[in-house]
Design a binder for these strands. Structure first.
Lengths: 136, 136
DNA sequence: ATTTACGTTTACGTTAACGTCAATAATCGC
DNA sequence: GCGATTATTGACGTTAACGTAAACGTAAAT
């Protein structure tokens, strides 16, 4: 991997966000690009972090939650106590995610029903068109 | 079903929200309880709507999106055009929900990895404790 | 009769996550 | 060398979704 470097508008375009958004994430400490003079340069690591942030946002996480989630990956966890606490966090996160999956499945089932009803209704009106031609 | 009626604090307690939240939802037109004098009375339909709203919120929907979603269920859709447009909405919603499911599955996989690493690390430190007893 | 508990309205406050200028600097194509 | 684009740094504005506080009504309990 060539350790590619990205400009801010590259990433903005790629992810469909504004440059303001990316700078805002930096302002909040979520990413720390290097500089060429005043210009920001984004590493692949930065790019991945943005990707993970946006993934988190898609399922309704706040930025703070996104960071917390991402931070679980990198091991600043030295002692036993921290490891146990991290495992607890993992478990509770997993619980939330599973609940969200249940919610989504319920909603998908609802959508299936709605679509069926719609199509039935359309089929009926189709039949009315076909079997009842203009009479005059 | 006895068509039970609920007070605002009943529902607040049941759903773990404040009464302020429930009144806010009414202010925004999401629910329309009846009144006994000035007191609000909530039907089972109201209760279900609140439930659906909170389900939507759990997966990151805005209140507006929640209403739109809920409104797909009740058929104010008379003509062919409306039915087609509703089907389109259903399809796009389904797309979003499936994306969210993918996101969640990715995150769950990440959590599994993190937990594994944690447990390995703990096992190693356990072994250090066990096989290297106090020497003095 | 008044404390206690619950409910209502009104209204200002707050936080998150950006949007939207404006002024300025650096860069690129020609 | 210069106009057009692209980036940067403030700084103020905005929207959603409630929180919070004040001021008041009502009904049961002590």
């Amino acid at each position: 991997m060539p350790a590619k470097i990205h400009t801010i508008s590259d990433l903005a375009k790629e992810f469909g966000v504004t440059t303001r958004t990316i700078r805002f994430y930096e302002e909040k400490g979520l990413i720390t690009p290097t500089r060429d003079g005043r210009k920001r340069l984004y590493s692949n690591a930065d790019r991945v972090r943005i990707k993970l942030i946006l993934r988190g946002k898609r399922i309704g996480m706040t930025l703070r939650e996104c960071v917390d989630f991402i931070d679980m990956y990198d091991p600043e966890h030295n002692n036993t106590e921290q490891l146990h606490s991290l495992i607890d966090d993992v478990k509770s996160r997993r619980g939330q995610l599973l609940q969200q999956k249940r919610d989504i499945d319920d909603m998908l089932a609802g959508l299936d029903e709605v679509q069926l009803l719609c199509e039935e209704s359309l089929a009926r009106s189709d039949r009315r068109q076909t079997t009842n031609p203009d009479k005059h």
